Amino acid sequence: MRLTCGKVMGSEAERIASFDRWLLQIGDGSVYADKKMELIKLPPDISIAPSHNQLKSIVDAVYPSLLQNYNDPTYLKERAILTPKNEMVHDLNEKIMNIIPGEGRTYYSSDNVCKASVNTNEEDILYPTEFLNNLRFSGIPNHDIHLKVGSPVMLLRNLNQTEGLCNGTRLMITHLGKWSVNANIISGKNIGTTVTIPRIIMSPNDSKWPFKLNRRQLPLATCYAMTINKSQGQTLQTVGLYLPKQVFTHGQLYVAASRVTTREGLKILNADEDSEDHTHIKNIVYREIFQNVYPRLVETHDVTL
């Protein structure tokens, strides 16, 4: 659907069809250079050659002329770096944020333990503030968020669906207040709308700790780079897949590669030190899923194959 959004004919249509077939082969796990190791071979035009500075290579590939376009919403909304894990997302965003001119502002969260989740009155002694500040959870902003005017961010909570403020909406910061920020929406149906994002109280849905954390913070995360899982639903013109470690779960590679609208918009950098060949990357697909689904669909006439 992303690849055929425009009318094309002739050789261009064949190029799109060829890329489409390659993506579908990744999705259903039907093409491997090494099936035992679950490795596929990257086409030369998609693979980025490794260098002594891997982070700079992927940033330059996805954000060319960044200093000239860092506050252009059209430039920002159509590109992103994807990577499997949150730790690398944080490093990439921090590196790019340091390139952007301006002082910026750091917002610190207010963290405490929900008293109803513990059976003691000594939670302040057991779980000091410094300890709570260092905790990181998926889907919850960090204790410290550094923002600059012009930086793109992603909303981590549904605030107002009518105004387009939903989980996954991307915005561009226009003003940094003391307890809130102003931003323009750059994705979805309300592009261009100016909104105010306040601090709210958030708690992780699933935690290994024997208490419930309440974190009052801006429900935002910088999104020059984002995890592959968080990119689901996004449509981008330029995607850089950065792999310091290989994908680790079913369908991750397909999700990342299928965010783009053209073959030229996809670049993949295999920076895994354990890889023998940077043009070969892992693609994890549990094919038994499809074997169980397709017969049932045929029997119930839910779909015509």
Rank of each mutant, 00 (worst) to 15 (best):
R2L: 11
G10I: 12
E14Y: 02
A17H: 13
W22H: 12
L23I: 13
Q25S: 09
D34Q: 13
K35V: 03
M37W: 00
M37L: 11
M37S: 13
E38C: 15
L39R: 14
I40D: 08
P44A: 10
Q54I: 03
I58C: 05
D60T: 06
D60L: 08
A61M: 11
L66Q: 03
N71I: 06
K77N: 14
A80D: 06
E94R: 14
G102T: 10
S110H: 11
V113K: 09
A116L: 09
S117A: 14
N119T: 08
T120N: 01
I125R: 07
Y127H: 07
N134V: 00
G139E: 01
P141F: 02
M154G: 01
C166Y: 02
N167V: 09
T174W: 13
A183D: 02
G188T: 08
T193A: 11
I197H: 06
P204F: 10
F211R: 03
N214D: 14
R215D: 03
L220C: 03
M226C: 05
Q232H: 13
Q232A: 09
Q234S: 10
Y242P: 00
Y242K: 04
Y242S: 04
P244L: 01
F248M: 07
H250R: 11
G251D: 06
R259E: 06
T262C: 07
R263F: 02
N270M: 01
D277E: 15
I281N: 12
N283I: 01
E288W: 15
Q291Y: 10
R296H: 13
H301P: 00
H301I: 02
